[in-house]
């Protein structure tokens, strides 16, 4: 299967099952798109007719393209057969270890964001803070269930995790005290709204956190529209100076600004560029996922605008890179040469199998988005994973699990998509969140185009 598209003056062919990417001229583009379903003589006649005014196109040139295509096919770089689909059953029976936990250290928040999936941090339940004892047991649980895996990830999440900062520090100290004994390396991350950022938190994060995610929606009027304090006041003026001070001291360590765009700011590239103007270089903007009845929900009519925005962003990023002032956008980070293995590309994020969320009480869920949905409780950190039925459901939840994805060119980039989004859109984790698919495919097209552009500028 191939995917052929034109973007920003480039003609691009993606060979789905080999991962190969080809940048081609007009003639080769036309021939490749006809090649598998049209007799060669017919292609030859069509091309000679179409390019009759082009002096570089003649019978020999067309035959040379045929020859190049056959060479690429022989090298398994074009029209490559799917060798993985038939093995999907083996994939379901694989043994997995847990390699990452999302610790919900605070089911409470000091902001009241309108679109929050966690219902102001409470996950439709009681306010709660994780105790050190629960956090300590979660670390032990991760070590016990991680097999020989050396690198382990722990994400401090909420609600607002900095509302339980003392426990965060204690959990990290405990993990550090035992990691060598068990031959493990903990990588900690933290997601914060910034309200409680101060010098002590900054120093701690710079010492212990591999990555810190800072929530900012961009322009002040956009951010303050939805991200308000409990008293109903916009939080932009409080957090932006704190974020700027934090990033200044961050040095070369990872962070990224994470925004959410809604129907209120379909021109979201302006928010990304605003964040860049504030001095932030590692950026991400996510489309809001919510009930279609919400006033800020994205609509079908928004799609062409959003597609154009993604293109504007890609072109601007190429321009800024050329000028020596680059920014990164999470969804355009694509490592074609040294990217993930096929296992990762089929299995995706590993929610429910390799990655789980832990509530303040120690209950386990497939990921942070399923917390508070009792039917998705997997067990707890004291008794272990007891709901094997749900785990098996998530094992089956991969790039080959959905009939709708059979003919999709992007499935080895999205791995079948986000289980939580599918569940929220269709009631089934192996459903398809079509709106998200459309945006995802556009982003991948832009990301690959950027790689092609950089390749040609070498």
């Amino acid at each position: 299967m191939i995917h052929a598209y034109k973007l920003n003056g480039y003609n691009i062919i993606v060979d789905v099952f080999s991962g190969s990417v080809h940048s081609v001229d007009e003639l080769a583009y036309d021939i490749i798109t006809l090649y598998e379903n049209t007799p060669k003589q017919q292609i030859l006649d069509q091309m000679l007719k179409k390019y009759k005014d082009d002096k570089t196109v003649n019978t020999q040139e067309i035959l040379d393209v045929f020859s190049d295509i056959e060479e690429l096919k022989k090298n398994k770089q074009l029209f490559t057969e799917d060798t993985f689909g038939g093995k999907a059953f083996d994939f379901k029976n694989r043994n997995t270890v847990i390699k990452a936990l999302c610790l919900h250290v605070a089911h409470t928040c000091n902001l009241n964001c309108e679109y929050c999936f966690a219902s102001q941090g409470k996950y439709h339940g009681e306010r709660a803070l994780m105790t050190y004892e629960v956090g300590k047991r979660a670390i032990d649980f991760l070590i016990e269930n991680s097999g020989t895996r050396h690198n382990l990830e722990v994400d401090f999440f909420g609600g607002e995790p900095l509302m339980n900062f003392e426990v965060v520090k204690q959990i990290v100290a405990y993990a550090r005290s035992i990691e060598k004994k068990y031959n493990k390396n903990f990588r900690f991350t933290l997601t914060t709204n910034g309200m409680n950022l101060n010098d002590e938190v900054t120093e701690f994060c710079n010492k212990e956190m591999d990555n810190v995610v800072l929530s900012l929606d961009g322009r002040k009027e956009i951010h303050d529209l939805t991200r308000k304090t409990i008293g109903g006041v916009g939080s932009y003026d409080i957090i932006v100076p704190k974020f700027q001070a934090f990033v200044k001291k961050r040095g070369n360590k990872s962070y990224y600004m994470r925004g959410t765009f809604t129907h209120n700011n379909t021109d979201f590239t302006n928010d990304i560029f605003h964040m860049a103007d504030l001095g932030f270089k590692e950026l991400s903007m996510e489309p809001v996922v919510c009930k279609p009845t919400e006033p800020y929900a994205l609509t079908e009519q928004d799609l062409p605008i959003l597609f154009e925005q993604y293109e504007i962003l890609a072109k601007e990023m190429l321009k800024r890179e050329k000028e020596g002032n680059p920014i990164t956008f999470y969804h355009y980070m694509l490592d074609l040469k040294n990217g993930p293995c096929i296992y990762k590309r089929i299995s995706g994020c590993g929610s429910g199998t390799e990655y789980m969320a832990v509530t303040p009480w120690g209950e386990l869920f497939p990921c942070h988005q399923f917390v508070g949905k009792p039917e998705y409780s997997l067990g707890n950190i004291f008794d272990g994973v007891t709901n094997k039925e749900v785990v098996n459901k998530f094992k089956n939840c991969n790039a080959y699990a959905r009939k709708d994805c059979t003919t999709c060119w992007a499935k080895l980039y999205c791995s079948g998509g986000c289980a939580a989004n599918a569940y929220n859109a269709t009631g089934d984790i192996t459903g398809v969140y079509e709106y998200g698919c459309k945006l995802f495919k556009k982003r991948i097209e832009c990301a690959i185009m950027m790689q092609v552009a950089k390749n040609q500028n070498k």
């Binding site: 080999s18 940048s23 081609v24 003639l27 393209v65 190049d68 690429l72 074609l336």
Partner: peptide, 14 residues
């Protein structure tokens, strides 16, 4: 030269 192939990690792996 009408086809330029980028260097990519070839997936056709266990």
């Amino acid at each position: 030269k009408r086809i330029n192939t980028l260097a990519t990690r070839i997936l056709v792996q266990t």
